[in-house]
Amino acid sequence: MDALEQARREIDTVDAQLAALFERRMKAVLSVAEYKKARGLPIFDAAREKVVLDKAEARIGDPALRPYYRDHVQNMMDVAKQYEAEVLGRNRAAYQGVEGAFAHIALRALFPHAEAVSCPTWDEVFDAVEKGDAAHGVVPFENSHAGDVSAVLDLCYNHPGLWVVDVYDLPISQNLLVLPGTQLSDLTRVYSHQQAIAQSETFLKQFGLPATAMPNTAMAAKFVAESGDRTKAAIASVETAALYGLEVLVPSINTDGDNTTRFIVLSREKPTAGNRFSLLFTLDNKPGKLAEVIQVIGASGYDMESIKSRPLPHVPFDYYFYVELVGDPAAEKTAALLRELNHVCRTVRLLGVYTK
């Protein structure tokens, strides 16, 4: 037996032992889930998770392997949380659109074992999470080519009971989808979400194709498939083409080859652990107020990765602001920053805590 075969046999032996230990661990997880269910406790406990991860890392003798083992235990804990959610009847995640939409693809990557709950609008995704009909909501937040999804940021502002607990960057490839046998010369109109249309603007202008906006890309593909009309095309993902029996006539028509959409994950449970946090704040309309906020953030030692402004609902020519900061939200200096911002801002609110 050569060294490679011997090493593979050793891995198989260890894997068999790990499988038995995994079942044993998940039985203990089931007991934890039942305990939480009986007492109405949340699934996620950030303080407990950190203790478990630190303890696990310390068990490894080889320092080079410690971060890898920590990641391994983190993955096991993420699987355990999904299992707990299923046991507790909380394993539902909401998204806007129909199966095959980019939000659905992102949801499946984030929550592979969850029941996907389709909502007609982003507003209804927020409502589903707020009412407890879904444990999480997955919605687009910004695109590397088309920019912010301003309506979603407004919904974040208008739903103070919800938190952003995770982010997920999904590479986007927009494709021209048609009924089988359709030629480019047959087309007279294209259908898709407004963001996808904006991302494919150069291609559409090149071929003189007018576009009609629809609630999302998958709905556009479904509409084209059901129409039976070869003059119509949709802009959507390859996965959507397979779902609705369409063909990819022209792949990757988006202008930006590095097109990526960032999705955020909504929850009613307040997060505590992460390496990023985001804030929403309002200011008195006085000279230098925004500069004062930026100065306070800079003096606290935080890197401000993003700042955005949006009109305040029902208050003409007044605005609220969103910032994303790099740092530990649980650190004492974060609490000190929030206290100082409370003196500078009219209102300030922690919106999200996550890792990226």
Rank of each mutant, 00 (worst) to 15 (best):
residue 3 A to M: 12
residue 3 A to W: 05
residue 6 Q to R: 10
residue 10 E to S: 14
residue 11 I to W: 03
residue 11 I to Q: 09
residue 14 V to L: 09
residue 15 D to Q: 07
residue 17 Q to E: 11
residue 19 A to G: 06
residue 21 L to K: 09
residue 23 E to Q: 12
residue 24 R to V: 02
residue 40 G to M: 05
residue 41 L to I: 05
residue 41 L to R: 15
residue 43 I to K: 15
residue 44 F to G: 07
residue 47 A to M: 11
residue 48 R to N: 03
residue 58 A to S: 14
residue 59 R to F: 03
residue 64 A to Q: 06
residue 65 L to R: 13
residue 67 P to N: 10
residue 67 P to Y: 15
residue 67 P to I: 10
residue 68 Y to G: 06
residue 71 D to C: 06
residue 75 N to D: 06
residue 75 N to I: 15
residue 76 M to C: 13
residue 82 Q to T: 10
residue 88 L to T: 09
residue 90 R to C: 02
residue 90 R to Y: 12
residue 91 N to C: 10
residue 101 A to F: 11
residue 105 I to C: 07
residue 105 I to N: 09
residue 105 I to T: 11
residue 106 A to K: 07
residue 108 R to G: 04
residue 109 A to C: 13
residue 110 L to Y: 06
residue 112 P to H: 14
residue 112 P to T: 12
residue 113 H to M: 09
residue 115 E to C: 15
residue 117 V to K: 03
residue 118 S to T: 08
residue 121 T to L: 08
residue 123 D to P: 08
residue 127 D to K: 04
residue 128 A to T: 09
residue 128 A to K: 03
residue 136 H to K: 15
residue 137 G to M: 12
residue 137 G to W: 03
residue 139 V to N: 01
residue 144 S to A: 10
residue 144 S to E: 10
residue 144 S to N: 05
residue 145 H to I: 09
residue 148 D to I: 15
residue 150 S to M: 11
residue 152 V to R: 02
residue 153 L to V: 15
residue 154 D to Y: 01
residue 156 C to V: 15
residue 162 L to M: 08
residue 162 L to Y: 12
residue 169 D to V: 13
residue 175 N to R: 07
residue 178 V to S: 10
residue 181 G to Y: 14
residue 183 Q to A: 15
residue 185 S to D: 13
residue 190 V to H: 14
residue 190 V to F: 12
residue 199 Q to V: 13
residue 202 T to M: 06
residue 209 L to E: 06
residue 212 T to H: 01
residue 212 T to M: 01
residue 215 P to S: 00
residue 217 T to C: 00
residue 220 A to P: 00
residue 222 K to Q: 09
residue 223 F to L: 03
residue 226 E to Q: 13
residue 234 A to L: 11
residue 236 A to Q: 04
residue 238 V to Y: 07
residue 239 E to T: 07
residue 244 Y to G: 07
residue 248 V to Y: 10
residue 253 I to D: 02
residue 253 I to L: 04
residue 254 N to D: 07
residue 255 T to Q: 04
residue 259 N to P: 03
residue 262 R to Q: 09
residue 263 F to H: 03
residue 265 V to D: 00
residue 266 L to H: 02
residue 266 L to E: 00
residue 268 R to N: 01
residue 269 E to N: 06
residue 271 P to E: 03
residue 276 R to M: 13
residue 278 S to E: 01
residue 283 L to V: 02
residue 290 L to D: 01
residue 295 Q to E: 10
residue 300 S to A: 05
residue 312 L to K: 01
residue 318 D to T: 14
residue 318 D to G: 04
residue 322 Y to C: 15
residue 325 L to Q: 04
residue 328 D to Y: 05
residue 328 D to R: 05
residue 328 D to T: 11
residue 333 K to E: 09
residue 334 T to L: 14
residue 335 A to V: 15
residue 336 A to Y: 12
residue 337 L to W: 04
residue 338 L to E: 09
residue 342 N to R: 13
residue 344 V to W: 05
residue 344 V to T: 06
residue 345 C to Q: 12
residue 348 V to P: 08
residue 350 L to A: 10
residue 351 L to T: 02
